[in-house]
Computed example of a mutant assay.
Amino acid sequence: MELGLKDKSALVFGAGGGLGGAIARELAAEGAKVVAADIDADAAEATAAAIRDAGGTGRALIWDIGDLTVLEERIATVKAAFGPISVLVNNTGGPPPTPAAGQSPEAWSRHFDQMVRSVIAVTDSALPRHAGSRLGRIITSTSSGVVAPIPNLGISNALRLALVGWSKTLAREVGRDGITANIILPGRIATGRILFLDEQKARREGRSVADVSAESSGTIPVGRYGDPSEYAATVAFLASRRASYITGSVIRVDGGLIASI
């Protein structure tokens, strides 16, 4: 299937991680020119190098998305390298496991700035309305916790949900400019983040990580954790011209994990 992404400029955050890296590589495989942004320089460069080794166009960019003082300079760097940004993938790290109760106001503010305010600011700067472009894609990766809150991820459940309301509102505002805005939800995808959460649960409950992972896999209808490439393929479709009539949506990539309709 031709996705119409050849030579389009894509900016992917968290591109040094499991999900972000897979997304960056998948977009590049479809012909997009990808900026792999991450706070970890080595991880970002590893993703960019993998893209280039596969024959694609990739560039690493060190970027702490929560640092808004560098926002305009980084956006200018991306546009100077690959032109106007056609595809923006907002993918931030999550906060540590915590209950909802008992967190300090400072903790809420810090994680809000990192996970919510930063995403909104970057999107406003990267993809201003450009009528007639007919390709502008804002894809924001959140968590299945926005549909079914995950125990002991109180801060994540609350703050990521704010992005769902923002994305839905934005989609209605920019649709006539050829821009779509969608939320994508990972279920339990086999990344370092999921391993970390399994390790934390195992430690709390005095169990082995293998036991926790097996129990968790047993709750998923397809019986396994997802592969990052499966998540990335969904993002690539949403980024494509083929998905031009999908906007304001929340797309689950969860192997059927979320029980609600």
Results as ranks from 00 to 15, higher is better:
Leu163Thr: 00
Met1Glu: 11
Leu197Pro: 01
Arg137Gln: 04
Val89Arg: 00
Ser217Tyr: 07
Ser260Gly: 08
Gly66Ala: 02
Leu127Tyr: 08
Pro228Asn: 06
Arg204Ser: 11
Ser208Asp: 12
Asp53Lys: 15
Ala41Lys: 14
Leu159Thr: 00
Gly256Tyr: 12
Gly56His: 08
Glu45Asn: 12
Gly16Leu: 05
Gly226Pro: 04
Arg207Gln: 14
Glu45Lys: 14
Pro84Lys: 10
Ser9Asn: 15
Ser104Asp: 03
Ile261Cys: 13
Ala48Ser: 13
Ala46Trp: 12
Gly178Asn: 02
Ile23Cys: 04
Arg204Phe: 13
Thr191Glu: 07
Leu19Asn: 02
Gly58Glu: 08
Pro99Leu: 07
Ser144Leu: 13
Trp63Met: 15
Val250Tyr: 07
Asp177Arg: 05
Asp40Gly: 07
Ala54Val: 05
Gln200Val: 10
Pro95Ala: 15
Gly154Tyr: 07
Ala190Pro: 00
Val87Pro: 00
Ser260His: 14
Ala10Tyr: 02
Ala171Met: 07
Arg110Met: 11
Ile120Arg: 06
Arg52Val: 15
Thr47Tyr: 11
Arg137Lys: 12
Val209Phe: 04
Arg242Leu: 12
Thr98His: 13
Ala36Met: 02
Arg193Cys: 02
Ala259Gly: 12
Leu88Tyr: 10
Gln103Ala: 06
Pro84Tyr: 05
Pro84Val: 03
Ile75Leu: 14
Lys168Phe: 07
Ile39Pro: 01
Ser104Ile: 00
Ser260Ile: 12
Ala214Met: 06
Tyr225Ser: 01
Val222Glu: 08
Gly226Gln: 03
Ser244Leu: 09
Phe82Met: 01
Val209Pro: 02
Thr123Ile: 05
Val222Pro: 04
Lys6Phe: 14
Asp113Gln: 10
Ile39Asn: 03
Thr47Asp: 06
Ser229Met: 10
Glu173Cys: 03
Val174Gln: 10
Ala121Glu: 09
Gly223Val: 03
Asp113Cys: 05
Glu199Gln: 13
Gly192His: 11
Ala60Arg: 08
Ala190Ile: 02
Gln103Tyr: 04
Val253Tyr: 11
Ala107Gly: 03
Glu215Ser: 09
Ala243Phe: 11
His130Cys: 09
Leu127Ile: 09
Gly58Lys: 04
Ile85Leu: 07
Val116Trp: 02
Asp113Phe: 04
Arg252Cys: 11
Thr191Met: 10
Ile220Lys: 08
Asp177Ser: 14
Ile23Asn: 01
Val70Lys: 06
Arg52Ala: 15
Ser216Trp: 09
Gln200Tyr: 12
Val116Met: 06
Thr140Ala: 06
Asp38Met: 10
Ala181Phe: 08
Ala10Asn: 07
Lys79Arg: 13
Val235Pro: 09
Ala107Phe: 13
Gly206Pro: 08
Leu71Trp: 05
Asn91Lys: 04
Pro105Ser: 08
Gly56Gln: 05
Val12Glu: 13
Ala28Arg: 00
Ala121Gly: 04
Ile139His: 05
Leu185Tyr: 05
Gly17Pro: 09
Ile246Arg: 11
Asp40Phe: 02
Asn152Ser: 05
Lys33Pro: 00
Asp42Asn: 11
Lys168Trp: 08
Gly255Thr: 01
Asp53Gln: 15
Asn182Asp: 12
